[in-house]
Amino acid sequence: MSNKEALLTIADLHASVEEKNILQGLDLEIKPGEVHAIMGPNGAGKSTMGYVLSGRDGYEVQKGTAVLDGVDILELEPEERAHAGLFLAFQYPVEIPGVSNLEFLKAAVDAQRNARGEEAISASDFLKEAKAACKQVNLPVSFLKRGVNEGFSGGEKKRNEIMQMLLLKPKLCILDETDSGLDIDALQVVAEGVNSQRAPDRSFVVVTHYQRLLDYIKPDFVHVLADGKIVKSGDASLALELEAQGYSWLQSSKEDVNA
């Protein structure tokens, strides 16, 4: 464990969707450079965590804080959270016909550079970067001209998410079940994309159901999220244990505590 200051600190986070309490006292601390895996049964609040942190409409925070790099992001607009360095790779990326991938990416990068007070990148330099990013995730360059995710296969959408991450260079990336619906080849592409971005000042939260992804993206910590909070944390071996035994032993041990 390093003594570095935390990049993200979530404390006692309570959040609801349509008046249903989903997160019920979530605590999590992530230091720069770390990779945390979040696993857990369906309905535990894994995706909700990503949506609450990124500021999706309809996700109400009742209580708690989430501080990213010194800034409490829960009061910010979604775009301001992105400017602060947050990136969420969606489980279901949205199709936006009529808005080209390239136009979208350039607008996003421009806005982020502008918010950080950096100089704008020229169209030709950006195109070069975008083409390189395409290549890195094995997407044909022609995809830059197509509508955002329009008519992309499931795997292509996920690779497009990783491409965005490569271009936006966030501080904290949350990958929300990025492995779902991927075959082994696509999984490797995604994992390589992530691994290429691992850096001492960049952290990852990998939300997944399956140990498989963690064979490729080695986590420093594994947490089990159940009933809206972390019920168990450990190192990478915890994922293997979960794979072998499922989650019921955790829930029964919880009942034991309650008993």
């Binding site: 999706r56 409409d57 992105a82 009529g98 607008a107």
Partner: peptide, 30 residues
């Protein structure tokens, strides 16, 4: 305006007003 598309653009850092213009224009740009 498609709220999901709006959120998606914003989550990548595109300011709300600009996202609105992009989405509305996308409607005929198709």
């Amino acid at each position: 305006i498609d709220k999901k598309a709006m959120y998606y653009l914003q989550s990548r850092g595109v300011p709300k007003e600009q996202a609105q213009v992009m989405l509305n224009f996308g409607f005929i740009n198709e």
